[in-house]
């Protein structure tokens, strides 16, 4: 899985800790998701989408699909 969390966060000028607060997870978990070491659960992914007010597929994408698009 790939994601644009880091970019979206930067656009809003949020730190990892800010986003972690909004999601009610630890800062380490936000970092692990951003670096692609951990794929969030579906509920957490929806929560992320809601906070950024974007559809999930605008934030997360399948590796293969992303490569095909490039």
């Amino acid at each position: 899985m790939r994601n644009r969390l880091k970019v979206l966060r930067a656009e809003r000028n949020w730190s990892q800790a800010d986003l972690a607060d909004k999601l009610d997870v630890s800062r380490q978990s936000v970092n692990a998701i951003e670096t692609g070491k951990y794929d969030p659960s579906l509920p957490l992914a929806f929560k992320i989408a809601k906070i950024f007010a974007l559809p999930i597929e605008k934030i997360f994408s399948d590796d293969e699909v992303a490569q095909a698009a490039e």
Partner: peptide, 10 residues
């Protein structure tokens, strides 16, 4: 910057 989640963890 409240670090709410860090406080919660502690």
């Amino acid at each position: 910057m409240t670090h709410h989640s860090d406080t919660a963890e502690r």
